[in-house]
Design a protein around this nucleic acid. Structure first.
Lengths: 197, 197
DNA sequence: TTGTTCAGATGACGTTGTCACCTGAACAAC
DNA sequence: GTTGTTCAGGTGACAACGTCATCTGAACAA
């Protein structure tokens, strides 16, 4: 780790990790470029050598998280001994787990990507990859004819369930139902629908 | 409009309107207390006579929007000549219309309320009112037995569909389906499920 | 009439994102 | 090996921001 390129790559990685850590622990307001730089071992101006502005840095953080999610869903899809219904359940669980463990990151992943066009493009591409992996999982379960329709419904609904749970708008007191039960109900309904129609 | 109380109430209203206007046109970053004050005809420190901090002001803006949505859904529910399925469709349309016409406000409404406990409580209460109105609409359609379950599923799913459309993650190119079609599919599925089970 | 309350104005402070400029070391060309 | 260049990083500076302490003047109660 002596060459200039290696050092720069290490700094860039440290900046992204620091930003992700601050986002997790303190929310978007806690992500300040000064603190990001400090945690990465550099000073306030250094991040601008790697990202055009703060929005771009956060968008790249979101893109990396979407890439990890895509990897997880792809891994689920590749499991040989799991049934299609099982795969779907695990893929949706991966999404909800991000929301529960890293709520601020989750909101960033599903926000409109902002900042540098390159960063925005990376985020869109990563989201596309995650959605393609999810499409494959759903395609295993239902006929190819309605794959897109059901996949879109499953994904948007799972996102809505997760998002409202994360924000506290899905309180158990009021609804007497958990996010898991909602997802199960949805999946079984779609399963029935796919079989009958 | 001469008394001190009336003047203060007018200023408070102007502050809320200014904040909502700035949020609509420029997003959360455009909402600065200085500009809010300027648009309301006061100076930067004046908002602190009406709201403890910026978060509380924005949370009250969200609470008022949720109250308006609750009113709309209640009005839909009270329509005499509409069928239950029609009412449900209109209630969900009201939600999606907010998302499309005022995307930044929509995200604020479904975010975790922040700031002053009084403001947070107002937002939670307004959200509860909106959800109660929605529960009534769904109760008209399905049996009382599964009202909560189906209402929760419909609301969270409609939110997810709207949220992903607003953020651009539900591109027509990729999914070949519109938000309306997704909602219709969901409603008809639940309708069938409610009839059969 | 007099004292009080309170909405609003003003000055100030620390923090933030961002830029222009500087420094030193890695690198390429000779 | 010398020399010129590139570029990651450091530093000073700026405007804008949220927030607070303090002041002022008018509405209000006595």
């Amino acid at each position: 780790m002596i060459s200039r390129a290696e050092s720069a790559a290490a700094t860039r990685r440290a900046l992204l990790d620091a930003a992700a850590g601050l986002l997790d622990s303190g929310g978007p307001d806690a992500v300040t470029l000064r603190e990001v730089g400090a945690r990465a071992g550099v000073t306030r101006g250094a991040p601008y050598r790697h990202f055009p502005d703060k929005d771009s840095l956060l968008t790249v953080v979101a893109a990396e998280a979407l890439d990890r999610l895509a990897d997880q869903v792809q891994a689920v899809c590749a499991e040989p001994q799991a049934s299609p219904a099982d795969k779907l359940h695990r893929a949706l669980s991966a999404l909800m787990t991000v929301g529960r463990r890293q709520p601020h990151l989750y909101r960033l992943m599903f926000a409109s990507p902002a900042g540098d066009p390159a960063a925005v493009h990376a985020a869109i591409q990563a989201a596309d990859r995650a959605m393609d992996a999810f499409l494959a999982v759903v395609g295993d379960l239902v006929g190819a004819q309605h794959t897109r329709q059901f996949a879109a419904l499953l994904l948007t609904s799972a996102h809505g369930i997760t998002d409202m749970e994360v924000s506290g708008h899905l309180s158990a007191d009021k609804w007497h139902i958990t996010a898991e039960e909602l997802v199960s109900t949805l999946v079984s309904m779609i399963d029935r629908q796919a079989r009958s129609g």
